[in-house]
Design a protein around this nucleic acid. Structure first.
Lengths: 238, 238
DNA sequence: ACAAAAGTGTTACACGTACACCCATGG
DNA sequence: CCATGGGTGTACGTGTAACACTTTTGT
């Protein structure tokens, strides 16, 4: 039995996380200030190297938890970035993951160990290396996926109103939807369970809270929905 | 300036290609007999290690060309497989790519340098490591993508008939479509240019050949089509 | 003439969209 | 009592699916 592929070259493999959040006012991105040279102090995605004995899922969850304290977060592998010179120090592949988190659950102090900060996606600073490209791709992927699968619920708290959900979709697609059609469409999926209380923060009438029907949610997760009108137009350029 | 991230561990990175082909009789998969230990002689996906100075695109194209002689082939990154023990020799990440080729363009001798052979997808042998899992995922991804984007044309020769195209879709989704609705749907996209000749191999009446309208094809590639009826049903389980 | 595949015409219906309108309530 | 946001009812049109029927031509 051989114990190594002796002639081949080994490379560094990192993971970078594109962490999206929502708090009712636009989609946000969690960024950190890079703690090591080169580019120390510049804004960057949260990342880390894959350890010798851990799986990629383990590594990505470990990195996310280190920054946010959160576990059981929605995460998806996006793409491997592998341009030979993407990291000037040494050849490093980076596996980009994107994560969706309820921004209110992120309680850690900002400017903590990593000097993390939420940025509105549209006011994002320049990032190191190819991280800007990673974010651009993640944005596309989020739109693509959310057009057909109910991923965006991952960005909301357990109880939410339909107008809240709508404003999330509007933020993601940067457009306005008809509220009357939107609520009917969403309700027709049977994914939501109406609660007794209303949220009166945004109107006098108040909007009912809903929770996800977890069973239907996991069952339908991979089903095609069609929450957004005119998907062909809104997704142009994919 | 630092020249290395000194403390981190480097790993081997391979690329494995899931190569789909079509010749009118079911979707096929191009496999090779592994040439090195361990598992030497067993069926496997075509693969190779990423070289120190090449990009991932370069590596995947190089590997595909070495096996098939083909360039400018449709290829897409699928997923990185990284279970710590996926290769018993030593930790190796594998970036899975899937490729779509016109089976008639593959002229190389079978049982050539790599002992390559086309297998009907449904009669596929057991593969080494996690390659079976890679193929399963690629199949899903092919169905998913083809439901909305006109990728399957990559599997056909330059000139093809609509019944041929339909039998390709039927092979991919393992079901039958209504030929009358199918041809209208496809033609309504404006992607096809009718030729003067007919193919008389499969019927006395003969079916007109078509070519792709390349301009529209690249423009619409990322647009949502909807070639298959009942996508929710056919894509169940994604 | 017939069989068999290619292709046209027609219809019913589901669904998405637009929009008039009603509801609830705090100021 | 009225402004505001939440929500229902309804009507219209497009696109999809089902299927009867016509076309073409080799045997």
């Amino acid at each position: 039995m051989i114990s190594r592929y002796s002639k081949e070259t080994r490379v560094l493999v990192a993971i970078d996380c594109i962490i999206f959040g929502f708090d009712g006012n636009g989609i946000k991105l969690l960024l950190v200030q890079r703690g090591l040279e080169p580019e120390k102090g510049k804004w960057s995605l949260m990342g880390g190297f894959v350890r010798p004995e851990e799986s990629l899922e383990h590594a990505s969850n470990r990195i996310l938890k280190k920054l946010t304290g959160l576990e059981d977060v929605y995460m998806e592998q996006l793409l491997v970035f592998g341009a030979p010179d993407r990291d000037p120090v040494e050849r490093t592949l980076s596996i980009a993951y994107f994560a969706l988190i309820d921004i209110l659950k992120y309680e850690k102090q900002l400017s903590d160990e990593y000097h993390a900060e939420w940025f509105l996606l549209k006011d994002m600073p320049t990032l190191i290396f190819d991280h800007t490209e990673m974010v651009a791709l993640a944005k596309k992927q989020l739109r693509y996926k959310a057009a057909m699968h109910p991923v965006l619920f991952e960005l909301l708290p357990e109880k939410f109103t339909i107008p809240q959900l709508q404003s999330l979709y509007e933020a993601v697609y940067d457009t306005d939807f008809d509220n009357r059609n939107f609520s009917r469409k969403v309700l027709s999926t049977g994914l939501l369970v109406k609660q007794k209380e209303k949220d009166k923060k945004n109107s006098k009438k108040g909007a009912f809270y809903f929770k996800l029907n977890k069973r239907k949610y996991t069952d339908h997760f991979k089903a095609f929905l069609n929450f957004i009108p005119n998907p062909e137009k809104l997704l142009n350029g994919f």
